[in-house]
Simulated scan of single mutants.
Amino acid sequence: MVATDGLPIIKLGVEDAIGGFALSTEARWNQTEEDWRVFLHEGVVFGIRDGARLVATAALLPYSGNNAWISMVLVSATHRRRGLATRLVDACLETARKNGLTSWLDATPDGAAVYGPLGFTSTLQLQRLKLVRPARAEAPPSSSATIDALRARDRRGTGFDRTALLSAIAQRSGSRIVSANGAIALVRDGRTARHIGPLFSDHAAAALALVDTIARSETGPLLIDAIVSQAAFLEGLTVSGWTIERPFQRMRFGPATAMAEEMPFAVAGPEFG
């Protein structure tokens, strides 16, 4: 076994997007190379190399109001169970501490078992659901939704100003913002499936109707990360053919600094919150 305890933690640059993408692909995550460029351009990404190969990463993406999102905590299968992820998360937390930031993340059950002892406390529970569509679709719905409308609703639903993030994603080829009857959502490409979220709505019926409209205009698989406390929405998704893939636990390290005015129905993804 090769000793890796002494491998240094380094800060990664935009040229490391391909290496990061290789790690998330190995883990069968849905991120694209463009997602990695957001983290590398807007945040701080720590990494560990073994020789020339990038074998572990963790990212800290700053948001407004002294908040930051920790994600992309990845270790190659060849280097797991050697403490690399803990070292990288510690680097993120130390950076957040020095800058007075409260840290957030969405953890898998295994991850939650690691982050709890580090001092993270649980907040929201999420469920990732998947829908596989036939290879035919209706015409995409017409919508006059704007990035400003999505940004405003996102701030009400999260307590964060994520203008830079939402604008970067919405401007990508294949992304669209869809709204109807008081509901609004962002739809974007992923590596293996299109992703719906964040999604905000005045009530569950409108949220479900918007998801159905989006789904009927898509030809490939779809993912959505729904908030468990939106029980009617979650039940409506499963009744309409969505299957639950895995849970996520939202966790916070530090004082609560963001006051949301409403509860979203689905989030932007565990990598973005």
Rank of each mutant, 00 (worst) to 15 (best):
M72E: 13
V73F: 14
V73L: 11
S76E: 14
S76Q: 10
T78H: 14
R81M: 06
R82V: 01
A85S: 11
T86C: 01
D90I: 07
A91N: 03
T95V: 03
T95L: 05
A96M: 02
K98C: 08
N99G: 05
L101K: 00
L101Q: 10
D106R: 08
D106W: 09
A107L: 07
T108G: 08
T108W: 06
P109L: 04
P109S: 08
V114G: 04
T121N: 11
Q125P: 01
L126E: 06
L129M: 14
K130N: 07
K130C: 07
L131F: 10
V132T: 15
V132M: 12
V132Y: 03
R133Y: 08
A135R: 15
R136Y: 12
E138C: 11
A139H: 07
A139S: 15
P141S: 06
S143E: 11
S143R: 13
S144V: 04
A145M: 02
A149R: 03
R151H: 07
D154Y: 09
G157A: 08
T158V: 06
T158P: 01
G159N: 02
R162H: 07
L165M: 00
L165Y: 02
S167D: 14
S167G: 09
S167V: 01
A170C: 10
A170D: 12
Q171N: 10
G174L: 06
G174F: 07
G174V: 02
I177Q: 10
V178K: 02
A180Q: 13
A180H: 12
A180M: 14
A183F: 05
A183M: 07
A185F: 10
